[in-house]
Design a protein around this nucleic acid. Structure first.
Ligand SMILES: [Mn+2]
Ligand SMILES: [Mn+2]
Ligand SMILES: [Zn+2]
Ligand SMILES: [Zn+2]
Lengths: 156, 156
DNA sequence: TTTGCAAATGACAACCGTTTTCATTATGAA
DNA sequence: TTCATAATGAAAACGGTTGTCATTTGCAAA
């Protein structure tokens, strides 16, 4: 029953109840792990960490919780090409933590970047608008990843 | 032994031999399917089509051929989130067929677009340059996908 | 053309991340 | 505290992909 982010508990309860979900020990532990992690965790990564502080937890619950958290918009799910999904907190309903990725195709290291997003965002918005019109899509998200070799890998 | 793109055969032979690969009936059939397909095919899609014109072919060979074609830069491999990889011809070494995608999150329809790429390319190049410098990455590819609802799905 | 050998192949099994099943347990409203 | 129901964990199932291995094929050399 370890809940680190006491501040969020009220908000969490409200958010979960609003969606018809119960706030359980396992779910709190998983959210806590995601809050403390600054990396892109796989389901198993999360399972192992949760298991440390709450040994009764099972991998199935991790998958189920991640599924509803994604559905609620609280986390993002990514595929970096290594055969397992990665998860990352979106920091709220509006995705305040939205960013893009730099992926090393050799060692799978992933770098978040937000530095150049301002310029990008302008063009993305425009592109979204034009694409929406032309193809009759209602666009509500995008994925941008750059692939290459990280510092270590390119020097080999 | 059905080879539709006779024109490419010479070039194909050279390209394969240059990489130390043999030109086999199965490989030709797979490349032929990819040439004629204007959609994003899964390994099984390709297997079924190949099987029609060359019944001896097996799924394993499809996977193996796709792997070397990707390594050679002749095809792109994509993940649109439905649990299976999709493949698409890159039309040559330099990837002349590079484009971006619009993905319907409801029915998984995928639309290629190149219309607005010119403007995008300019910014992408700049972003790549800055990211390369800042994070010491050598960038050689990118993935851009917009997610939303297609015409049919948004009207439900 | 024939030969010889390494590369390629196909049937099948194994792999592994994820999902489903089902009997048991925990949550939260009354 | 009680109770209906949602959530859970263990285990099995699932499905796309990869590995194994005996057989076949491409193709260079003779
Ligand atoms: Mn990230
Ligand atoms: Mn495409
Ligand atoms: Zn690397
Ligand atoms: Zn759709």
């Amino acid at each position: 029953m370890p809940v680190r982010n006491k501040c969020c508990e009220q908000w969490l309860h409200g958010k979960f109840k609003g969606c018809g979900y119960k706030v359980t020990t396992g779910r709190q532990a998983i959210l806590d792990i995601l809050h403390k992690a600054n990396k892109h965790l796989s389901a198993e990564d999360i399972y192992l960490k949760v298991h440390n502080i709450y040994p009764a937890a099972g991998l199935t619950t991790v998958y189920r919780t991640l599924e509803i958290l994604e559905k609620m918009g609280m986390i993002y799910k990514f595929d970096f090409g290594d055969g397992r999904a990665r998860y990352e907190l979106s920091e709220g309903e509006k995705g305040e933590n939205h960013h893009h990725h730099l992926v090393c195709t050799n060692c799978n290291q992933v770098v978040d970047y937000t530095d150049f997003i301002d310029k990008e965002v302008k063009l993305l918005k425009e592109t979204e608008r034009e694409l929406s019109k032309k193809y009759n899509f209602s666009i509500n998200n995008h994925l941008i990843q750059f692939y290459g070799l990280c510092e270590k890998c390119k020097s080999k």
